[in-house]
Design a protein around this nucleic acid. Structure first.
Lengths: 232, 232, 232, 232
DNA sequence: CATGAATGAGGGTTCATTCAT
DNA sequence: CATGAATGAACCCTCATTCAT
């Protein structure tokens, strides 16, 4: 009896804490999604909390059970965004062996992603470089491919940091363009081609690589980016 | 008598108002300079006014004799910054006939300017695209040279807007880099070369053009950028 | 069968409820002890509940199974403290017949108690008069001895209330001193002597009485005061 | 002309800043007076600011032009209270040569002051020792007279700190009594007598000294203590 | 009874803007 | 025009209390 009773109460405790953790995770996700939308629409420095909790439909105090400051929230969103990009784009990128193809695939896919999910583009534009510099995207994935390209002699650019600036800068600029005016249909490929050229790939080769078929960008239904805050 | 008296008082008024206007201009300049520093150091959304008036050494109320809102101030600073860049860089640029050389000269000069006056780089990075999109720099000067290059077949890039993104994006990114880490000595030329390549100039030619001697960037003593707010 | 079953289940209930009551008592005690420490360290108006439940190692909700409000908690602690003082000090006091000796014994013992258990002194200092005015200590025990002393002509002070002020006030002040700076070894006896003098006992007699050996203050191991919250 | 003009504008500046300083001083005084009342009525730890600004009739933000925290405000009030006591009582005290007479005069005057201005008594009781330990009253004036008494052999108490506890403790306790119940007419003198006895003055002498005529406590019309917050 | 996430009233604090001098 | 005290809307944040599990 004692044993059973004990095991019963142990189970109860486990159950309780499991349920609690699930609730926590759910609320956190709700907040991050809402914050993405709010940051995208109102900018990073906006007096955000009110809007976020309204969007998420939770109470003021709840927010502070998860994030103590505006900044902490922004970092959380930026991290999630960064992971999400990797989760979506990297599978396509790593199908390619050639570093030049990888870069081309990466940048054109990200551009297409931004076209499909303007909320994402807005977030990056409003958040500036900081919105991409958290997480491993800009600290690992991009440098990995730059490094490989340099090592294999695919790129002639003299400095990896310069290469980085010539990839990330245009991407943010392109996002801005996407949000403000219509662009020609081949914009993503043209963009990729120019980026390759800037790294030192010849025009002809850059053209060929950027015209390759890399596969379509598949965004899961439950993705952060699918949430627009307009339905329930 | 009446006439004389009138003319006397008119003169007096003229004198007074000329002096007054000069004083006005001086105070305004003090405020704009101070604001540039403050925006650069604390970002656009900072609790700006307190800092600006402290930096400028004027009273709170004085501020409102010159700018009615925060935003008006930012626009004023952005305009002055934009004009100042043109005033400093365009004389060098227009010495060149070749649009490719003009672009190369423009971007490398601007990078050098940012290296010499970090306050300027900070202002642009913190202020985002908006800090460059006021004034004629990005709306006239840069498109002018892009257009010329396309018209003359110097560039093969299919879309002027894309060209724009591939110039302005990297510049902001480069500013960020300059502020964050040391760069190699040839960074400005390398940067210019890559930009030309991205627009479709061949590597060899891009290299030659970017190595040309465009003349040194001369910043007048009284320039906006010379003010760092540390001395009187 | 019915009878047996009933009696069986009654026993079971009794057993269960006895166990339950013991557990209840234990949790309550844990909370009171924790609260004493928290009130002592952070004052009465501190954001108490968080600290108390953390100190006691129970969940937020559990607290409200025992005390409905902050105030109820404070009163509970004050009562327990008051009873505890009486439980510890009164046995020594009542050994004395002479009211003057009782007062001397009482005040010097309380001072020694405060020296040995600073948590107690802190609680009184932070809680103010209220922390002593609950329970029978100040409403019965002290007035009892004052009254006896006046009745027997041991004290010449004209007003019992004044006598009370001249005992309790200095005690709180002394607690404050004990917590703030080192005191001479004879502080408790000197203190007692002065208190007697203030009540009208002559200097010589006050000196003799306050130098009597009243026995040592014995604090049970399980006392409220022994708990400092630092071990398990 | 120039000279006159200059001197005129200098005068103007002086005038402006003098007027500003006067306004500041006035507002500060309003806040301190209001805060005294609020602290007295609601305790030191009350959520005070709302009440203070309402009482003072100033805007929320004005408060923060003068005090950044609750504590800063409390200290300011405590200091003003302390100075005010000294301003009112010390002239009477210093008329006496004998340290015993000084102490007697001091304590009985302070008790009378508390009787006449309950707001003052309340502030001290609610604020605890801290409300008297700012300013020079308890750090200089009282120790000065204790020291003199010990040096001249008027007191036999072995420890100045103990003497301090036997003066300040009873005073606070007496304030509490004054606020809660009626006291006999001779309470101030009786109190003073007992205090002297506790310091080691003989009963007979203590009696004589405490019955001396020390002069009446004169409170200026504009005193902090006269303000009750009930009129405009 | 224990648990701990959610709540939201009730405070605190800032800072762009006004206005009397 | 310069000054700087006063303003108050608009935020920020905490923490006692509730309640579903």
């Amino acid at each position: 009896m004692d044993i059973l009773q004990n095991s019963a109460s142990v189970e109860a405790i486990d159950h309780r804490s499991r349920v609690a953790m699930e609730r926590r995770e759910k609320t956190r996700a709700k907040l991050v999604r809402s914050a993405l939308v709010v940051f995208a629409r109102h900018g990073v420095d906006a007096k955000v909390i009110d809007l976020v909790i309204k969007q998420a439909g939770v109470a003021r105090g709840t927010f502070y059970n998860y994030f103590r400051t505006n900044d902490e929230l922004f970092v959380a969103v930026a991290e999630d965004v960064s992971s999400e990009i990797i989760r979506i784009v990297d599978p396509l990128v790593t199908r390619q062996e050639d570093p030049a193809a990888r870069i081309a695939c990466g940048v054109s896919s990200v551009i297409r992603l931004a076209q499909a999910y303007p909320i994402f583009a807005e977030f990056v534009v409003r958040g500036g470089p900081a919105s991409l510099s958290t997480g491993s995207l800009t600290s690992e994935v991009v440098p990995r491919d730059i490094g490989a390209g340099l090592a294999l002699g695919r790129f002639t650019i003299p400095d990896p940091q310069l290469a980085f600036d010539l990839i990330v800068g245009p991407v943010i600029s392109a996002f801005y363009t996407i949000l403000t005016r219509p662009v020609i249909e081949t914009y993503p490929q043209d963009f990729a081609q120019s980026v390759l050229q800037s790294l030192g790939v010849t025009q002809e080769e850059a053209r060929q690589i950027s015209r390759m078929e890399f596969g379509t960008v598949a965004v899961p239904e439950d993705s952060l980016f699918s949430y627009t805050g307009n339905s329930s």
